Amino acid sequence: MTDTLLLTGVVGSTAYGLAGADSDVDVLGVYAAPTTVFHGLHPPTERTATKVSTDPDRTLHEAGKFARLCLSGNPTVTELLWLPEELYQVRTPLGEELIGIRTAFLSAPRVRDAYLGYATRQFRRLEARGDGSFSADTRKRVAKHARHLARLVHQGLELYRSGRLTVRLADPEWYLDFGARVAAGDLDVARALMARGEADYAAARTVLPERPDEDAVERWLLRVRAAHYTHPCCKGD
Rank of each mutant, 00 (worst) to 15 (best):
S53E: 12
R181M: 07
E85Q: 15
G117D: 02
C70A: 15
G95H: 04
S162C: 07
L7W: 04
G95C: 12
A216T: 12
A63V: 04
Y201H: 06
R181F: 08
Y115G: 00
Y115Q: 01
V224M: 03
T2K: 14
P93C: 12
H228P: 13
T8W: 02
L94S: 07
R124M: 12
L80V: 04
P84V: 08
T4D: 08
E173T: 10
E85S: 14
F38Q: 11
P56Q: 08
V224W: 01
A143V: 03
V30D: 05
R205F: 04
T45C: 07
L157G: 03
T138A: 11
Q155N: 04
L60F: 03
L149Q: 06
F105H: 03
E127C: 04
V37Y: 10
T50P: 05
A150S: 09
P43I: 01
R110S: 05
T8E: 08
D57W: 08
L221A: 08
I101V: 10
L81C: 02
L98T: 02
E97S: 11
P209M: 04
V182P: 00
E218F: 10
F66P: 02
L18A: 06
L116P: 01
S135W: 05
S162M: 10
A136N: 07
C233L: 15
G185D: 05
A136L: 14
A204P: 07
L6K: 05
P212C: 03
A195P: 09
R121Y: 13
V27W: 00
W220N: 07
L71K: 05
V11R: 00
E96V: 09
T48Y: 07
L157S: 03
L165N: 00
A21P: 15
G20L: 04
F38W: 14
V90D: 01
A180V: 06
K140C: 14
S135Y: 07
